[in-house]
Write a protein that binds this DNA or RNA. Sequence first.
DNA 1: TCTGGGGTCCTAGGACCC
DNA 2: TCTGGGGTCCTAGGACCC
Length: 428
Amino acid sequence: MFAIIDCNNFYVSCERVFNPQLWHKPVVVLSNNDGCFVARSNEVKQLGIPMGAPWFKWKEQVKQLKCQVLSSNYALYGDMSTRVMSTIYQLHDPEKTAVYSIDEAFLEFEDNLTPEETQQIGHHFKQTIEQNTGIPVSIGFARTKTLAKVANEIAKKDSRSSNHYQGIVSLVHSNPNELEKHLKSIEVRNIWGVGRANSQKLNEKGIRNAYQLSQWDSAIGRKHLSIQGSRIIQELNNIRCYNLDKDPITKKGISSTRSFGKAVTNIEELQEAMAMYSTIIGRKLRKSGQATSCIAVFARTSRHTQNHYHENASYHFETQTNYTPDILKAALHCLDKIYRPGVLFKKAGIFATGLVEDKPIRRSLFHKSTEEDEQKQKSIMQTMDNLNRRYGQETIHLARYGFKQNWRMKNEHRSPRYTTVWNEILKV
DNA sequence: TCTGGGGTCCTAGGACCC
DNA sequence: TCTGGGGTCCTAGGACCC
Protein backbone atom coordinates (compact mmCIF):
# COMPACT_ATOMS: atom_id res chain seq x y z
CA MET A 1 0.00 0.00 0.00
CA PHE A 2 0.96 3.63 -0.47
CA ALA A 3 0.97 6.74 1.65
CA ILE A 4 1.23 10.22 0.28
CA ILE A 5 2.53 12.92 2.58
CA ASP A 6 1.54 16.37 1.36
CA CYS A 7 2.50 19.64 3.08
CA ASN A 8 -0.46 21.91 3.87
CA ASN A 9 -0.44 25.23 1.97
CA PHE A 10 3.28 24.65 1.67
CA TYR A 11 4.63 28.09 0.72
CA VAL A 12 2.38 29.80 3.27
CA SER A 13 3.49 27.33 5.95
CA CYS A 14 7.18 28.01 5.18
CA GLU A 15 6.59 31.73 5.71
CA ARG A 16 4.79 31.08 8.99
CA VAL A 17 7.64 29.04 10.43
CA PHE A 18 9.83 32.15 10.52
CA ASN A 19 7.08 34.70 11.06
CA PRO A 20 4.59 33.30 13.59
CA GLN A 21 2.53 36.49 13.41
CA LEU A 22 1.14 35.02 10.21
CA TRP A 23 -0.53 32.12 12.01
CA HIS A 24 -4.34 32.21 11.89
CA LYS A 25 -4.26 35.17 9.55
CA PRO A 26 -5.10 35.16 5.85
CA VAL A 27 -1.87 34.85 3.82
CA VAL A 28 -1.23 34.48 0.08
CA VAL A 29 2.01 33.86 -1.79
CA LEU A 30 2.39 35.25 -5.31
CA SER A 31 3.99 33.65 -8.35
CA ASN A 32 7.21 34.97 -9.85
CA ASN A 33 6.86 38.58 -10.97
CA ASP A 34 4.12 39.03 -8.35
CA GLY A 35 1.58 37.88 -10.94
CA CYS A 36 -0.97 35.50 -9.47
CA PHE A 37 -1.70 33.47 -6.33
CA VAL A 38 0.23 30.22 -6.04
CA ALA A 39 -0.44 29.50 -2.37
CA ARG A 40 -3.28 30.45 -0.05
CA SER A 41 -3.83 29.89 3.64
CA ASN A 42 -7.04 28.11 4.70
CA GLU A 43 -8.57 31.45 5.68
CA VAL A 44 -8.11 32.67 2.11
CA LYS A 45 -9.36 29.43 0.54
CA GLN A 46 -12.52 29.66 2.60
CA LEU A 47 -13.13 33.15 1.26
CA GLY A 48 -13.23 31.73 -2.24
CA ILE A 49 -10.15 33.29 -3.79
CA PRO A 50 -9.16 30.79 -6.47
CA MET A 51 -5.74 29.25 -7.06
CA GLY A 52 -3.89 30.90 -9.91
CA ALA A 53 -6.09 34.02 -9.91
CA PRO A 54 -4.26 37.19 -10.97
CA TRP A 55 -3.47 39.44 -8.04
CA PHE A 56 -4.46 42.72 -9.67
CA LYS A 57 -8.01 41.45 -10.16
CA TRP A 58 -8.40 40.71 -6.45
CA LYS A 59 -6.36 43.56 -5.01
CA GLU A 60 -9.33 45.28 -3.38
CA GLN A 61 -10.79 42.16 -1.79
CA VAL A 62 -7.39 41.11 -0.54
CA LYS A 63 -6.83 44.50 1.03
CA GLN A 64 -10.21 44.42 2.76
CA LEU A 65 -9.44 41.01 4.26
CA LYS A 66 -6.24 42.42 5.77
CA CYS A 67 -4.55 39.60 3.97
CA GLN A 68 -0.76 39.38 4.13
CA VAL A 69 0.60 39.29 0.55
CA LEU A 70 4.07 37.82 -0.04
CA SER A 71 6.27 37.38 -3.11
CA SER A 72 7.57 33.87 -3.55
CA ASN A 73 10.85 33.02 -1.87
CA TYR A 74 12.08 29.88 -3.61
CA ALA A 75 15.38 29.82 -1.74
CA LEU A 76 13.38 29.37 1.46
CA TYR A 77 10.84 26.88 0.07
CA GLY A 78 13.53 24.74 -1.55
CA ASP A 79 15.46 24.54 1.69
CA MET A 80 12.37 23.78 3.77
CA SER A 81 11.46 21.05 1.30
CA THR A 82 14.88 19.45 1.84
CA ARG A 83 14.26 19.48 5.61
CA VAL A 84 10.85 17.83 5.26
CA MET A 85 12.19 15.17 2.89
CA SER A 86 15.19 14.34 5.06
CA THR A 87 12.89 13.89 8.04
CA ILE A 88 10.80 11.50 5.96
CA TYR A 89 13.97 9.59 5.02
CA GLN A 90 14.73 9.20 8.72
CA LEU A 91 11.24 7.85 9.39
CA HIS A 92 10.94 5.48 6.45
CA ASP A 93 13.20 3.33 4.26
CA PRO A 94 14.53 5.73 1.59
CA GLU A 95 14.36 2.85 -0.89
CA LYS A 96 10.59 2.83 -0.36
CA THR A 97 10.23 6.60 -0.56
CA ALA A 98 9.76 8.67 -3.71
CA VAL A 99 9.85 12.46 -3.57
CA TYR A 100 7.12 13.52 -5.96
CA SER A 101 7.25 17.31 -5.86
CA ILE A 102 8.54 20.18 -3.74
CA ASP A 103 5.92 19.41 -1.07
CA GLU A 104 4.89 15.76 -1.58
CA ALA A 105 6.34 12.28 -1.22
CA PHE A 106 4.93 8.81 -1.87
CA LEU A 107 5.85 6.03 0.58
CA GLU A 108 5.34 2.32 0.09
CA PHE A 109 4.36 0.02 2.97
CA GLU A 110 3.77 -3.69 3.48
CA ASP A 111 0.19 -4.64 2.84
CA ASN A 112 -0.48 -6.33 6.18
CA LEU A 113 -0.81 -3.34 8.53
CA THR A 114 -3.93 -3.24 10.70
CA PRO A 115 -6.13 -0.12 10.70
CA GLU A 116 -4.72 0.79 14.12
CA GLU A 117 -1.12 0.43 12.97
CA THR A 118 -1.85 2.57 9.93
CA GLN A 119 -3.27 5.32 12.11
CA GLN A 120 -0.32 5.11 14.50
CA ILE A 121 2.22 5.40 11.72
CA GLY A 122 0.31 8.33 10.24
CA HIS A 123 0.20 10.25 13.49
CA HIS A 124 3.81 9.48 14.33
CA PHE A 125 5.01 10.71 10.90
CA LYS A 126 2.85 13.81 11.03
CA GLN A 127 3.99 14.78 14.51
CA THR A 128 7.66 14.17 13.79
CA ILE A 129 7.63 16.21 10.58
CA GLU A 130 5.88 19.09 12.34
CA GLN A 131 8.25 18.88 15.29
CA ASN A 132 11.38 18.85 13.12
CA THR A 133 10.41 21.42 10.50
CA GLY A 134 7.34 23.37 11.67
CA ILE A 135 5.49 22.37 8.51
CA PRO A 136 2.00 20.80 8.94
CA VAL A 137 1.22 17.87 6.64
CA SER A 138 -1.70 15.66 5.63
CA ILE A 139 -1.31 11.94 4.98
CA GLY A 140 -3.45 9.68 2.81
CA PHE A 141 -3.16 5.88 2.78
CA ALA A 142 -4.55 3.53 0.13
CA ARG A 143 -3.72 0.58 -2.09
CA THR A 144 -3.17 2.70 -5.19
CA LYS A 145 -1.53 6.08 -5.68
CA THR A 146 -4.70 7.61 -7.10
CA LEU A 147 -6.72 6.52 -4.06
CA ALA A 148 -3.96 7.73 -1.72
CA LYS A 149 -4.34 11.13 -3.37
CA VAL A 150 -8.09 10.90 -2.82
CA ALA A 151 -7.52 10.07 0.86
CA ASN A 152 -5.19 13.04 1.18
CA GLU A 153 -7.75 15.32 -0.44
CA ILE A 154 -10.33 14.18 2.10
CA ALA A 155 -7.90 14.83 4.96
CA LYS A 156 -7.20 18.34 3.69
CA LYS A 157 -10.86 19.21 3.23
CA ASP A 158 -11.66 17.85 6.68
CA SER A 159 -8.87 19.90 8.28
CA ARG A 160 -10.61 23.02 7.00
CA SER A 161 -13.88 22.08 8.73
CA SER A 162 -14.35 19.65 11.62
CA ASN A 163 -10.81 18.28 11.69
CA HIS A 164 -12.36 14.97 12.64
CA TYR A 165 -9.57 12.99 10.95
CA GLN A 166 -6.70 15.16 12.26
CA GLY A 167 -4.91 15.10 8.94
CA ILE A 168 -4.75 11.29 8.52
CA VAL A 169 -7.12 9.37 6.24
CA SER A 170 -6.80 5.74 5.19
CA LEU A 171 -8.89 4.04 2.52
CA VAL A 172 -6.95 0.79 2.86
CA HIS A 173 -9.49 -0.99 5.03
CA SER A 174 -12.64 0.80 3.87
CA ASN A 175 -15.59 -1.41 3.00
CA PRO A 176 -17.36 -0.75 -0.33
CA ASN A 177 -20.00 1.49 1.29
CA GLU A 178 -17.44 3.70 2.98
CA LEU A 179 -15.37 3.91 -0.19
CA GLU A 180 -18.45 4.85 -2.19
CA LYS A 181 -19.28 7.62 0.27
CA HIS A 182 -15.75 9.02 0.11
CA LEU A 183 -15.49 8.84 -3.66
CA LYS A 184 -18.82 10.64 -4.01
CA SER A 185 -17.35 13.57 -2.08
CA ILE A 186 -14.58 14.08 -4.65
CA GLU A 187 -15.37 16.14 -7.73
CA VAL A 188 -14.02 14.68 -10.93
CA ARG A 189 -11.80 17.76 -11.43
CA ASN A 190 -9.94 16.99 -8.20
CA ILE A 191 -8.91 13.47 -9.16
CA TRP A 192 -5.20 13.10 -9.80
CA GLY A 193 -4.71 13.05 -13.59
CA VAL A 194 -8.03 14.64 -14.51
CA GLY A 195 -7.46 18.20 -15.62
CA ARG A 196 -9.61 20.98 -16.96
CA ALA A 197 -10.23 19.52 -20.40
CA ASN A 198 -11.12 16.02 -19.28
CA SER A 199 -13.30 17.11 -16.38
CA GLN A 200 -15.34 19.18 -18.79
CA LYS A 201 -15.66 16.21 -21.10
CA LEU A 202 -16.78 14.04 -18.18
CA ASN A 203 -19.25 16.60 -16.87
CA GLU A 204 -20.88 16.72 -20.28
CA LYS A 205 -21.43 12.98 -20.00
CA GLY A 206 -22.96 13.39 -16.55
CA ILE A 207 -19.92 12.14 -14.65
CA ARG A 208 -19.41 14.57 -11.79
CA ASN A 209 -17.71 12.71 -8.95
CA ALA A 210 -15.04 10.07 -8.47
CA TYR A 211 -17.57 7.36 -7.64
CA GLN A 212 -19.39 7.81 -10.95
CA LEU A 213 -16.08 7.65 -12.79
CA SER A 214 -15.05 4.51 -10.91
CA GLN A 215 -18.22 2.80 -12.18
CA TRP A 216 -17.29 3.47 -15.81
CA ASP A 217 -15.99 0.62 -17.92
CA SER A 218 -12.26 1.15 -18.25
CA ALA A 219 -12.39 0.38 -21.99
CA ILE A 220 -14.83 3.27 -22.38
CA GLY A 221 -12.50 5.37 -20.28
CA ARG A 222 -9.72 4.42 -22.67
CA LYS A 223 -11.80 5.57 -25.60
CA HIS A 224 -12.73 8.96 -24.18
CA LEU A 225 -9.72 9.83 -22.01
CA SER A 226 -6.91 7.78 -23.59
CA ILE A 227 -4.73 5.31 -21.75
CA GLN A 228 -4.43 7.60 -18.70
CA GLY A 229 -8.21 7.52 -18.27
CA SER A 230 -8.45 3.76 -18.12
CA ARG A 231 -5.63 3.70 -15.56
CA ILE A 232 -7.40 6.24 -13.38
CA ILE A 233 -10.59 4.15 -13.43
CA GLN A 234 -8.70 0.99 -12.49
CA GLU A 235 -6.79 2.75 -9.73
CA LEU A 236 -10.07 4.05 -8.27
CA ASN A 237 -11.11 0.39 -8.10
CA ASN A 238 -8.03 -0.64 -6.12
CA ILE A 239 -6.27 -2.06 -9.17
CA ARG A 240 -2.70 -0.86 -9.13
CA CYS A 241 -1.39 0.71 -12.34
CA TYR A 242 1.41 2.90 -10.94
CA ASN A 243 4.38 1.70 -8.98
CA LEU A 244 6.41 3.71 -6.49
CA ASP A 245 8.70 4.92 -9.31
CA LYS A 246 11.68 5.95 -7.24
CA ASP A 247 14.56 7.26 -9.28
CA PRO A 248 14.16 10.67 -10.78
CA ILE A 249 14.84 9.83 -14.42
CA THR A 250 17.51 12.02 -15.90
CA LYS A 251 15.97 15.13 -17.38
CA LYS A 252 15.15 15.31 -21.07
CA GLY A 253 15.10 19.06 -21.28
CA ILE A 254 15.99 22.04 -19.13
CA SER A 255 14.54 25.50 -19.48
CA SER A 256 14.91 28.92 -17.97
CA THR A 257 12.26 31.51 -18.73
CA ARG A 258 11.05 34.65 -16.98
CA SER A 259 8.53 37.41 -17.39
CA PHE A 260 9.94 40.91 -17.20
CA GLY A 261 8.99 43.38 -14.48
CA LYS A 262 8.15 45.85 -17.25
CA ALA A 263 8.02 45.64 -21.03
CA VAL A 264 11.46 45.60 -22.69
CA THR A 265 12.19 47.02 -26.14
CA ASN A 266 15.91 47.46 -26.05
CA ILE A 267 18.17 44.65 -27.30
CA GLU A 268 20.87 45.25 -24.67
CA GLU A 269 18.37 44.45 -21.95
CA LEU A 270 17.25 41.29 -23.72
CA GLN A 271 20.91 40.32 -24.00
CA GLU A 272 21.29 40.74 -20.24
CA ALA A 273 18.29 38.48 -19.72
CA MET A 274 19.87 35.90 -22.07
CA ALA A 275 22.98 36.03 -19.91
CA MET A 276 20.90 35.21 -16.85
CA TYR A 277 19.05 32.32 -18.54
CA SER A 278 22.33 30.91 -19.94
CA THR A 279 23.86 31.09 -16.48
CA ILE A 280 20.93 29.20 -14.95
CA ILE A 281 20.92 26.57 -17.68
CA GLY A 282 24.69 26.08 -17.51
CA ARG A 283 24.57 25.68 -13.74
CA LYS A 284 21.70 23.18 -13.89
CA LEU A 285 23.43 21.13 -16.59
CA ARG A 286 26.69 20.98 -14.66
CA LYS A 287 24.86 20.05 -11.49
CA SER A 288 23.16 17.10 -13.14
CA GLY A 289 26.30 16.08 -15.05
CA GLN A 290 24.71 16.77 -18.41
CA ALA A 291 25.43 18.80 -21.54
CA THR A 292 23.13 20.16 -24.23
CA SER A 293 23.37 19.71 -27.97
CA CYS A 294 20.67 22.21 -28.96
CA ILE A 295 19.11 25.32 -27.50
CA ALA A 296 16.02 27.25 -28.52
CA VAL A 297 15.40 30.87 -27.63
CA PHE A 298 12.04 32.61 -27.56
CA ALA A 299 10.88 36.14 -26.90
CA ARG A 300 7.30 37.30 -26.78
CA THR A 301 4.89 40.09 -25.98
CA SER A 302 2.20 39.77 -23.33
CA ARG A 303 -0.39 37.08 -23.99
CA HIS A 304 -3.10 39.41 -22.77
CA THR A 305 -2.77 42.26 -25.23
CA GLN A 306 -3.52 42.68 -28.91
CA ASN A 307 -0.88 42.22 -31.64
CA HIS A 308 1.07 39.30 -30.32
CA TYR A 309 4.64 38.78 -31.29
CA HIS A 310 6.14 35.40 -30.45
CA GLU A 311 9.24 34.07 -32.18
CA ASN A 312 11.68 31.19 -31.70
CA ALA A 313 15.11 30.45 -33.04
CA SER A 314 17.33 27.49 -32.32
CA TYR A 315 21.00 26.61 -32.47
CA HIS A 316 22.66 23.20 -32.76
CA PHE A 317 26.06 22.85 -31.16
CA GLU A 318 28.75 21.01 -33.07
CA THR A 319 29.86 19.51 -29.79
CA GLN A 320 27.55 19.28 -26.79
CA THR A 321 28.35 21.73 -24.02
CA ASN A 322 27.54 22.99 -20.55
CA TYR A 323 30.00 25.89 -20.71
CA THR A 324 27.96 29.02 -19.90
CA PRO A 325 29.78 31.37 -22.32
CA ASP A 326 29.14 28.94 -25.21
CA ILE A 327 25.46 28.75 -24.32
CA LEU A 328 25.23 32.53 -24.09
CA LYS A 329 26.99 33.01 -27.42
CA ALA A 330 24.51 30.70 -29.12
CA ALA A 331 21.59 32.40 -27.35
CA LEU A 332 22.70 35.85 -28.48
CA HIS A 333 22.98 34.54 -32.03
CA CYS A 334 19.37 33.30 -31.82
CA LEU A 335 18.21 36.54 -30.22
CA ASP A 336 19.54 38.54 -33.18
CA LYS A 337 17.28 36.52 -35.45
CA ILE A 338 14.08 37.16 -33.51
CA TYR A 339 14.59 40.67 -32.13
CA ARG A 340 12.40 43.41 -33.63
CA PRO A 341 12.88 47.05 -32.60
CA GLY A 342 9.79 48.62 -31.08
CA VAL A 343 8.20 45.36 -29.93
CA LEU A 344 7.18 45.39 -26.26
CA PHE A 345 8.74 42.17 -25.03
CA LYS A 346 7.25 40.83 -21.80
CA LYS A 347 8.78 37.40 -21.55
CA ALA A 348 11.74 35.45 -22.91
CA GLY A 349 13.63 32.28 -22.23
CA ILE A 350 15.89 29.46 -23.32
CA PHE A 351 15.16 25.74 -23.71
CA ALA A 352 18.03 23.27 -23.76
CA THR A 353 17.34 19.89 -25.38
CA GLY A 354 19.26 16.94 -26.73
CA LEU A 355 20.74 16.43 -23.29
CA VAL A 356 23.56 13.93 -22.95
CA GLU A 357 25.73 12.75 -20.13
CA ASP A 358 28.65 15.14 -19.75
CA LYS A 359 31.43 12.55 -19.41
CA PRO A 360 32.79 11.22 -22.68
CA ILE A 361 32.92 14.24 -24.96
CA ARG A 362 32.03 13.24 -28.45
CA ARG A 363 33.99 15.65 -30.59
CA SER A 364 32.60 16.80 -33.89
CA LEU A 365 34.79 16.36 -36.94
CA PHE A 366 35.23 20.14 -37.20
CA HIS A 367 35.72 20.78 -33.51
CA LYS A 368 38.21 23.57 -32.96
CA SER A 369 39.14 23.55 -29.30
CA THR A 370 41.72 21.25 -27.81
CA GLU A 371 41.45 19.03 -24.80
CA GLU A 372 43.50 21.58 -22.90
CA ASP A 373 41.00 24.36 -23.68
CA GLU A 374 38.19 22.17 -22.43
CA GLN A 375 40.00 21.46 -19.19
CA LYS A 376 40.40 25.20 -18.67
CA GLN A 377 36.73 25.84 -19.34
CA LYS A 378 35.75 23.14 -16.91
CA SER A 379 37.82 24.55 -14.10
CA ILE A 380 36.55 28.09 -14.72
CA MET A 381 32.97 26.88 -14.42
CA GLN A 382 33.82 24.85 -11.35
CA THR A 383 35.40 27.85 -9.67
CA MET A 384 32.40 30.01 -10.54
CA ASP A 385 29.95 27.43 -9.23
CA ASN A 386 31.91 27.05 -6.01
CA LEU A 387 32.12 30.79 -5.35
CA ASN A 388 28.45 31.30 -6.06
CA ARG A 389 27.43 28.37 -3.92
CA ARG A 390 29.49 29.63 -1.02
CA TYR A 391 28.91 33.38 -1.20
CA GLY A 392 25.50 33.60 -2.88
CA GLN A 393 24.15 32.94 -6.34
CA GLU A 394 25.23 36.13 -8.13
CA THR A 395 28.55 36.81 -6.46
CA ILE A 396 30.44 36.35 -9.72
CA HIS A 397 28.87 36.46 -13.17
CA LEU A 398 29.43 37.20 -16.83
CA ALA A 399 29.83 40.88 -17.73
CA ARG A 400 26.90 40.63 -20.13
CA TYR A 401 24.68 40.02 -17.12
CA GLY A 402 24.66 43.76 -16.52
CA PHE A 403 24.43 45.56 -13.21
CA LYS A 404 21.15 47.46 -13.30
CA GLN A 405 18.90 44.83 -14.79
CA ASN A 406 15.86 47.07 -15.01
CA TRP A 407 13.94 44.22 -16.63
CA ARG A 408 14.09 41.94 -13.62
CA MET A 409 10.85 40.51 -12.37
CA LYS A 410 8.89 42.09 -9.60
CA ASN A 411 9.47 40.62 -6.20
CA GLU A 412 8.35 43.40 -3.95
CA HIS A 413 7.14 41.48 -0.92
CA ARG A 414 9.74 38.78 -0.51
CA SER A 415 10.59 37.62 3.00
CA PRO A 416 14.26 37.19 4.01
CA ARG A 417 16.06 34.06 2.85
CA TYR A 418 16.28 32.97 6.47
CA THR A 419 17.98 29.64 5.94
CA THR A 420 20.33 30.14 2.99
CA VAL A 421 21.91 33.63 3.22
CA TRP A 422 23.97 34.55 6.27
CA ASN A 423 23.04 38.19 6.54
CA GLU A 424 19.33 37.44 6.21
CA ILE A 425 19.31 35.06 9.15
CA LEU A 426 16.56 35.55 11.73
CA LYS A 427 17.58 37.81 14.61
CA VAL A 428 16.15 37.06 18.06
C1' DT B 1 -9.43 -2.52 -63.86
C1' DC B 2 -6.67 -3.88 -60.08
C1' DT B 3 -2.19 -1.01 -55.85
C1' DG B 4 -0.10 -4.88 -49.09
C1' DG B 5 1.50 -5.45 -44.66
C1' DG B 6 4.40 -4.57 -41.03
C1' DG B 7 7.42 -1.84 -38.96
C1' DT B 8 10.44 2.55 -36.85
C1' DC B 9 11.42 7.26 -35.91
C1' DC B 10 10.37 12.05 -35.50
C1' DT B 11 7.54 16.09 -34.56
C1' DA B 12 3.82 19.07 -33.09
C1' DG B 13 0.23 19.74 -30.21
C1' DG B 14 -2.45 18.80 -26.30
C1' DA B 15 -3.20 17.36 -21.62
C1' DC B 16 -1.60 16.84 -17.36
C1' DC B 17 1.26 17.58 -12.86
C1' DC B 18 3.18 20.73 -9.00
C1' DT C 1 -0.74 49.29 -15.23
C1' DC C 2 -0.96 44.56 -13.43
C1' DT C 3 -1.93 37.44 -15.60
C1' DG C 4 4.45 32.07 -13.18
C1' DG C 5 7.85 28.58 -14.18
C1' DG C 6 9.38 23.98 -14.99
C1' DG C 7 8.48 19.64 -16.18
C1' DT C 8 6.32 14.67 -18.25
C1' DC C 9 3.57 11.75 -21.13
C1' DC C 10 0.42 10.52 -24.96
C1' DT C 11 -1.43 10.71 -29.65
C1' DA C 12 -1.78 11.48 -34.47
C1' DG C 13 0.29 12.07 -38.62
C1' DG C 14 4.07 12.08 -41.78
C1' DA C 15 8.26 10.16 -43.62
C1' DC C 16 10.78 6.52 -44.11
C1' DC C 17 12.33 1.28 -44.33
C1' DC C 18 11.72 -3.64 -46.40
